[in-house]
Deep mutational scan, measured.
Amino acid sequence: VDNKFNKEQQNAFYEILHLPNLNEEQRNAFIQSLKDDPSQSANLLAEAKKLNDAQA
């Protein structure tokens, strides 16, 4: 993981990586967004979790 991520951002990265119901395309999009703007990690994680739950 890129060293410019802080602890919260790293946690978001790993959580998104391991959400079971996202397809690869969705997962990659969230990860790319996280890399583009790490400050949005909490929002991105919340969105990813919502999508993950919706696809459960």
Rank of each mutant, 00 (worst) to 15 (best):
A12T: 07
L19R: 00
E25Q: 13
A29F: 15
A46Y: 14
D36E: 07
Q10V: 04
K50S: 11
N52W: 01
N52S: 06
H18P: 00
H18Q: 08
E8L: 02
S39R: 09
A56Y: 10
Q10G: 03
L45W: 08
Q55F: 10
E8R: 01
F5Y: 06
K35T: 05
Q40F: 07
A46R: 04
L45A: 05
N6C: 06
E24C: 14
D2T: 02
I16A: 01
P38W: 03
P20A: 06
L19N: 01
N28D: 05
A54M: 12
L17N: 07
L22F: 02
L51W: 11
K35A: 04
E15M: 15
L34C: 09
Y14E: 08
A12N: 04
D37E: 08
A42D: 07
K4N: 14
D36T: 13
D2N: 04
N3H: 05
N28C: 14
E8A: 03
Q32M: 15
N3L: 01
E47W: 15
H18F: 06
D2P: 02
K35M: 09
I16E: 00
K49P: 00
Q10N: 04
A46D: 10
K7D: 14
E24W: 14
R27W: 01
N3G: 07
L19W: 01
A48I: 01
E8D: 14
L17T: 08
L19Y: 05
N3Q: 09
K7A: 05
S33I: 10
H18I: 10
E24N: 12
E47N: 10
Q10C: 12
D2W: 01
A29Q: 07
N3W: 01
Q55V: 12
Q32H: 14
L45T: 07
D36I: 15
F13V: 08
Q55A: 11
E15N: 12
V1L: 10
P38I: 04
F30S: 01
L34V: 09
I31H: 05
S39Y: 12
F5T: 07
A29M: 12
L51D: 02
E15I: 12
F30A: 03
A42M: 14
H18M: 05
K4S: 08
R27I: 07
E47L: 15
L45E: 03
E8H: 04
L44M: 06
Q40N: 06
N23H: 11
Q55S: 13
F30Y: 11
L22K: 00
Q26Y: 03
Y14A: 06
N23R: 11
F5G: 07
E15D: 05
K35E: 06
L17K: 10
H18N: 05
D37R: 05
D36A: 15
A29S: 07
L44S: 03
N3P: 09
L22D: 00
H18V: 06
K4P: 08
Q40I: 10
R27G: 01
H18L: 10
L34I: 07
Q55P: 09
Q26G: 01
E47F: 15
A42P: 07
L22H: 00
L19T: 01
S33R: 15
L22C: 00
L22Y: 00
A56P: 10
N52P: 01
E25S: 10
N21C: 13
K4V: 11
L44R: 06
L51C: 08
E25K: 09
E15K: 15
N52R: 02
F13M: 14
I16C: 01
L19I: 02
E15W: 15
K50L: 13
D36N: 09
K35V: 09
Q9N: 02
E47V: 15
L44A: 02
E15Y: 15
A54C: 12
S41T: 09
E24S: 13
A56Q: 12
Q32A: 13
K50V: 13
Q9E: 06
L22N: 00
Q9V: 09
A46M: 13
S39P: 08
A54H: 12
F30K: 01
K7T: 11
E15C: 15
L45S: 05
L17S: 12
R27A: 05
D53A: 13
L19P: 00
A54D: 11
S39I: 11
E8S: 04
D53T: 13
A48L: 01
F13A: 07
L17G: 05
N28K: 12
N6Q: 03
A46G: 06
K4E: 14
K7N: 11
I31A: 14
E47P: 00
N21I: 02
D37F: 05
S41W: 15
F30M: 06
L51Q: 09
L34Y: 04
K50C: 13
Q55L: 14
L19G: 00
D2E: 05
N21W: 15
N11Q: 15
Q26H: 04
P20I: 07
D53C: 13
Y14K: 07
A42G: 05
E8M: 02
P38T: 03
